[in-house]
Design a binder for these strands. Structure first.
Lengths: 351, 351
DNA sequence: AGGTACTGTGGGAGCGCTCCCACAAGTGAT
DNA sequence: ATCACTTGTGGGAGCGCTCCCACAGTACCT
C-alpha cells in the first residue's frame, strides 16, 4: 500500500512545497501563511489556506525545529518519584492549570519525573540536547542542582516556590507569609489564646515564610511569641504526630495549632486524639493546602487554600514570555520576575 | 571542565561534523559510532568516542528526526479527563510499568489526555503530524474512533484491553476470564452455594469475559447457572449499589457476590449493609482490580489482582517491536499479537 | 523626472542529521 | 594473476522547514 521504499513525489505527507505548487505561490508565502505572518495579502492567504485544507497539510515538526532552532515544547519537571506525584493533589492541580494555560498554544507539554538518580541522568541528557524550549520546576528543594544546570544551559525556567528570597530564576509562589497570617488571625479571632505552630521542613523557603507569618500575626495582635510553641515538622504525617506530642508535653495548656500542611495536621490530630483532646472544643486545628485530606478529615479541617491551578497558569505565562524573548529573564538584566498569589482561608469545623 | 567557550566554529552546540573533524574521521563514521553500528573498527570507535566526550556532543534530535523520519517518542494516550487519571490507581501503575520498560531505551514517553473534545482535536492533529512513532492506548471504549484513526495513519499502536475478540490492534490484557473463574472457584471452595455476579459495562469486552468465566466456573463445579443471579452494573459505585439491591430482592437467599470491580463491590457492600446482611458471615463478597479501595474497605475486600505494571511493560515490548518493524503488525500480515497476562486472587476478610 | 519607502512575493541557503553509494584495502578461492 | 567478496570509511544528496535577501510593484514625496 502507501509506504514502500521511495516515499517520493506524492506518496507521503504533503510538504510546504507541494502546498505552494497547488496554490500557485512560492514556498516562502506558504510558510508565512502557516505562521500567521501579517505580510501576506488576503487574496493570497485565502488561496494558500484552501490548498492547505485540500491537501490536509500538517507542518513537519522536526523540520521546523531544525530550521528554527526551537522545539515548541516545554517540560514540567517533577523532582519526585511518581508515587508522590500521584499521591499529592498539589501536582494534579498544577498539571491542570498548566494544561489549561497551554491549550490555546501550539506548545506541547512534557511531564518528566526526576525522582531517581537514573532519571536525573536522563533528564540532564535531555536538557543538554535542548529538547525543550523551557522548563517548569515544581517542588524543588533548597540544594537541588537542577536550577543551576538550567541557567548554565540558558534554558528558560520558572520555579514554583522560590528557593530563597534571592531566587534568581523566575518564580511563582503563593503568599506563604500572608496565608500563615490568615490562619493565625483566624484562630485569634475565634478567641484562642495559646496558639502553637508545627512548621514544615525548615530548608524550604515557604515553610520559613509561614513561620514569619505566624510570628507577625501574633505580635500584631498583641500576643507575645513563645518559642516553645513552635515545633519543627517536616510536612509528613508522622512528623506532625511527633511534633504535636512534643508540644502537648511542653505546653499542655495550648488551645490551638496551626500546622504547616494538611498532612501534618492529620498527624497532629492523631496525637491530640491519643491525648484525649477534642477538636475543636479543646484544641482548634488549622492546616495548609486545602487538600482532599482536609475535606475528608474528621472533623473537616480548616485550611489555607493556595490557588494552585492559577499558579500553574502564571508559571506558563512567565515561561512563555521568557521563551519568546529567547533567554532567561535574569540574563537579560530585567527585573526579576517573581509572582506571588494570594491565599484564602477555608473555614471548616476544626477551628 | 568539559564545556568552555570556543567550541567549534560558532560557539553553539557541537555538530557531528565538528566531532568528525576533531576525531580526524568522516561524518558518516561518527554517525555510525553514535548509532552503535558494528561496521566501525575498534580503534576508530575509540577515537570518535573520545572526541564526543571532549566536545560534550549531544545529537540534535530534530535533525535526526528529520533525516531518519522517526521521532524516538511514543505517546501514552488516556482518553479520559485528567481527574479520572489521577483518581484511579490503574493509570499510575500502568505509567510505572511503561516508564520502567522504557528506561533502558532512548524512547521518550509522552502523556496525552484526550478527555474533552478539544483535547481530542489536538490529539488528532498531533497524530496527523506523526509526532510520535507509536501509541499506547489505555481504557478505550468499544465505539472509540481513535484506534481506527491510528490504523488509518499507519501508526503502530498497542491497546490495553482489546475491544473485542476480533481486535485488530496489537493488545495486552489480563485474563479476565481466568480471573473471574478464580473468584468464583474461591467462593465455591468456601462453601458458598448461591453466587451472584454484578457485571461491568456490557459494552466492555473484558466485562463479557468475566461473565463467561463466572458461568463456566459454576458449570464446571456442577452448579447450574441461574440468570437471575446475574445483574448488570457499570463499574460504578452507584451501579453496584443498585444491582445489589435488585439481586437481594430477586434472590434473598444468595450467599455470595462476585463484583466486576472493587468500586462496584463497594456499592454492593453498601446495599448489603442497608439490608442488614453481614460480610462475610451472611454474604461473601469478591471484587476485581485489587485497588486501594479493596485494601481499605471494611472488611478488607478479597479481589482479583491484575498485573498492571507487567501489562505496561508488555505493551511497550509489543509496541517497540512494531515500531522497529516500521508498520502496524496487522498490515504485515503477521499473526495478531495479543498478550494475556495471568491474574491472581488476593484473599482478604470479605470472603 | 527621479528618489525613497513601503508591501508582497519568490526562492537560495542553510539547519544537523541519516542514508547510501563509491571506493580503498584486505582476504581467499580459483 | 584474476576475480569475488568483505570490511571500513568518506562524503554527496537529501529530509522539510525558516530565515533572509532580492526584487517587482505601488505610493507618495520632492
Amino acid at each position: 500500500m502507501a509506504s514502500h521504499g521511495a516515499r517520493g513525489r506524492s506518496g507521503g505527507r504533503p510538504t510546504l512545497e507541494e502546498v505552494a505548487a497547488r496554490a500557485g505561490v512560492g514556498r516562502g508565502t506558504v510558510s508565512r501563511v502557516i505562521n500567521g505572518s501579517p505580510r501576506v495579502s488576503d487574496a493570497t492567504r485565502a488561496l494558500v489556506e484552501a490548498a492547505v485544507a485540500e491537501l490536509g497539510y500538517v507542518p513537519n515538526t522536526a523540520a521546523r525545529a531544525l530550521a528554527a532552532n526551537r522545539t515548541d515544547a516545554i517540560a514540567l519537571v517533577v523532582p519526585e518519584p511518581e508515587t508522590r506525584f500521584f499521591a499529592e493533589p498539589y501536582f494534579s492541580d498544577m498539571l491542570r492549570g498548566v494544561g489549561a494555560a497551554l491549550s490555546d498554544t501550539e506548545m506541547q507539554l512534557l511531564l518528566i519525573f526526576a525522582g531517581s538518580d537514573r532519571e536525573r541522568q536522563r533528564l540532564a541528557q535531555y536538557l543538554a540536547a535542548h529538547r525543550v524550549d523551557g522548563v517548569l520546576l515544581v517542588s524543588v528543594h533548597a540544594d537541588d542542582p537542577l536550577p543551576d544546570m538550567l541557567s548554565q544551559l540558558e534554558i528558560p525556567a520558572v520555579i514554583s516556590g522560590p528557593r530563597s528570597a534571592a531566587e534568581t530564576l523566575a518564580s511563582v509562589d503563593s503568599d506563604n507569609y500572608g496565608g500563615a497570617r490568615q490562619a493565625v488571625e483566624h484562630l485569634i479571632g475565634r478567641g484562642r489564646r495559646t496558639i502553637a505552630h508545627i512548621t514544615g521542613r525548615l530548608d524550604v523557603y515557604g515553610a520559613q515564610r509561614r513561620i514569619d507569618g505566624y510570628r507577625d500575626a501574633l505580635r500584631d495582635a498583641g500576643h507575645e511569641v513563645d518559642e516553645l510553641l513552635i515545633e519543627p515538622g517536616d510536612f509528613s504525617e508522622e512528623g506532625g504526630r511527633r511534633a504535636m506530642a512534643a508540644l502537648l508535653e511542653r505546653r499542655p495548656d495550648l488551645d490551638a495549632v496551626f500546622a504547616a500542611s494538611d498532612v501534618t495536621a492529620a498527624g497532629a490530630r492523631q496525637a491530640l486524639r491519643e491525648a484525649g483532646r477534642r477538636i475543636p472544643d479543646d484544641v482548634a486545628l488549622v492546616g495548609y493546602d486545602d487538600s482532599a485530606i482536609a475535606r475528608h478529615m474528621d472533623p473537616p479541617l480548616t485550611s489555607v487554600r493556595q490557588p494552585i491551578q492559577e499558579m500553574g497558569r502564571a508559571m506558563i505565562d512567565l515561561l512563555l514570555t521568557e521563551v519568546a524573548d529567547r533567554r532567561p529573564a535574569v540574563s537579560r538584566g530585567l527585573e526579576r520576575r517573581q509572582m506571588v498569589l494570594a491565599t484564602e482561608l477555608v473555614d471548616r469545623a476544626s477551628s
